[in-house]
């Protein structure tokens, strides 16, 4: 592990300035991904700025722009957020996504902001002896013709075919959550669905955040689709594994007609994949499994598969029907 300098500021402005002023600096939160990257040589920062001393530990109901949101500080632990009574009652997809991720130990260490900024578990990204455009731009992609089980089927590029590993990000996108950031250019809000980016020709950039821009909070607006939402995760073993494919969905019915719906897929793209075509196909329609499957098919027309990833298309299609059927039946 390369030696680094370590800072633990107690205010956001100092933390932001420390990273913004040093191209070789990185924020450190719970460390469950970054500490491993230090060991593997995937990350070799010259300065770590520990954000766990920043006062971003609260969950509170707040008024933002005329509406009520649950404001979650970036340092709130994954375990505490999953157990929070308002999250369990008003945002079940978020609670379900959190408890489906990692292990209890890791959920005590991992934070809300850090979870969103974890990096891909692509085996080639994590193995510094192999080419990887995300780790080393221009070196090539080993996954394109390599081990493909965790590769993307939507929105990939020739430069990068990996997926984003966060379960939480998928659920947050489905409940219309926003991230609040503080950076060299000041504070801003952006939807979680717009935080991560598709790889294009710059797969080294996971998100739209600037260097030195820090997630300080996540805001979850209460809504009918959030209140009736859930998360389903398909994986290779029953627990403690990343998603092969996952679905976060919310449903608001008017009788048997779909008034509003959210469908976001995980494990299939470089970002949480909001299935906008599928949502559009369902809105205003009578709810049925056939309608859901047809909507999923409309979205999946864009899918591009290889022999190693072809299984994901029927998997995410079936999971979408399962999840929406469960919600229509009153489950969460």
């Amino acid at each position: 592990m390369r030696p680094f300098d370590y800072l633990r500021p107690d205010d956001v402005a100092t933390a932001v300035r420390a990273v913004a002023d040093d191209p070789d600096a990185r924020f450190l939160a719970g460390g469950t991904n970054l500490v491993d990257h230090l060991k593997l040589g995937v990350a070799r920062p010259g300065l770590l700025v520990d954000v766990r001393g920043l006062p971003l530990h609260d969950v509170e109901v707040a008024d933002v722009g005329g509406g009520t949101v649950l404001r979650v500080g970036a340092n709130v632990r994954n375990s505490d957020l999953a157990a929070h009574p308002v999250v369990r009652r008003e945002f079940p997809a978020v609670a379900r996504a959190l408890v489906s991720a990692a292990s209890a130990q890791i959920r005590h260490q991992a934070t809300t902001g850090g979870n969103l900024l974890q990096r891909t578990r692509c085996v080639y990204f994590q193995d510094v002896s192999t080419p990887c455009n995300k780790r080393e731009p221009g070196s090539g992609c080993s996954a394109v013709e390599g081990f493909a089980r965790y590769n993307a089927v939507l929105g990939a590029s020739p430069e990068c075919v990996t997926v984003h590993p966060s379960d939480l990000a998928v659920a947050l996108a489905a409940v219309d959550a926003s991230v609040v950031t503080d950076g060299p250019a000041g504070e801003r809000r952006l939807p979680v669905a717009e935080l991560h980016r598709l790889p294009g020709d710059a797969p080294e950039k996971d998100t739209v955040l600037e260097h030195g821009e820090l997630i300080t909070a996540v805001e979850l607006p209460a809504s009918p689709v959030a209140q009736r939402s859930t998360y389903y995760k398909a994986r290779d073993r029953a627990s403690y594994a990343f998603a092969l494919a996952s679905v976060a969905a919310g449903l608001e019915l008017d009788g048997d007609v779909v008034r509003d719906v959210r469908i976001v897929w995980g494990g299939v793209a470089h970002k949480p994949w909001r299935a906008l075509r599928a949502e559009e196909a369902l809105r205003g329609e009578r709810f049925s499994e056939e309608a859901v499957l047809a909507a999923a098919d409309a979205e999946l027309e864009q899918a591009e598969t290889s022999p190693g990833t072809a299984f994901k298309v029927p998997m995410v299609r079936g999971a979408t029907a399962l999840v929406l059927g469960r919600l229509a039946g009153g489950g969460r």
Binding site: Y6, R8, L28, G31, T32, V35, D36, D50, R52, S79, S103, A104, Q105, I106, H108, Q109
Partner: peptide, 19 residues
Amino acid sequence: CTVLLDGRRHLTCLALAVS
């Protein structure tokens, strides 16, 4: 490597001592 850290189970291999 699990221990109880400030009362909760943690993985000590992913925790920097300075942190």
